[in-house]
Computed example of a mutant assay.
Amino acid sequence: MKFRALFVFLLLACFCLSLAQGSYENCCLSYVDSVKPSVKKAVRSYRTQETDGGCNIQAIVFKLRKGKVFCANPEISWVRTLMKKLDAKNKKVENRKKSG
């Protein structure tokens, strides 16, 4: 009886640990091919997803005004251009805050 209880406990512990490993990841699994200009204007920020941990693809995760996100391939030219525009915009905002 004790052996069965111990076996069930260990089985449940392993099951819970395996579920917990994947639950903390928020990874892109694919890229968008293109986005409309209106969507590009709605982008507020971005972050880089690396291929470490549970994420298998490198991606740029763009965040829109209302909290929605989309993932893009960092090697595509429109993605790099959009990142540069966001960086320049954020730098301009930081400079205004420092001077005023």
Rank of each mutant, 00 (worst) to 15 (best):
F3S: 13
R4V: 08
A5F: 10
A5C: 09
A5I: 14
L6P: 00
F7Y: 11
V8Q: 06
F9E: 00
L11K: 00
L12N: 12
A13F: 14
A13R: 10
C14G: 15
C16S: 14
L17N: 11
A20Q: 13
A20E: 12
Q21T: 12
G22H: 08
S23D: 14
Y24A: 11
N26E: 15
N26S: 15
N26M: 08
C27P: 05
S30P: 04
Y31N: 01
V32Q: 07
K36R: 08
S38A: 12
K40F: 02
K40D: 01
K41M: 08
V43M: 05
Y46S: 04
Y46I: 03
R47G: 01
T48N: 07
T48F: 04
E50P: 02
E50A: 07
T51W: 00
D52I: 05
D52L: 02
C55S: 07
C55N: 06
Q58K: 07
Q58E: 12
Q58I: 01
A59K: 00
I60C: 03
I60G: 03
F62R: 04
L64I: 07
G67C: 08
G67Y: 06
V69E: 11
F70V: 03
C71Q: 03
N73I: 05
N73K: 08
P74W: 03
P74R: 00
P74N: 00
I76W: 06
I76H: 11
S77C: 00
S77L: 12
W78K: 05
V79W: 04
R80C: 01
R80M: 10
T81D: 09
T81M: 04
L82W: 03
K85V: 08
K85R: 13
K85A: 13
L86D: 08
L86A: 08
D87G: 08
D87N: 14
A88P: 03
K89L: 14
K89S: 15
N90S: 15
N90E: 15
K91T: 13
K92Q: 15
V93H: 13
E94Y: 01
N95F: 08
K97M: 09
K98D: 07
K98S: 10
K98P: 06
S99I: 11
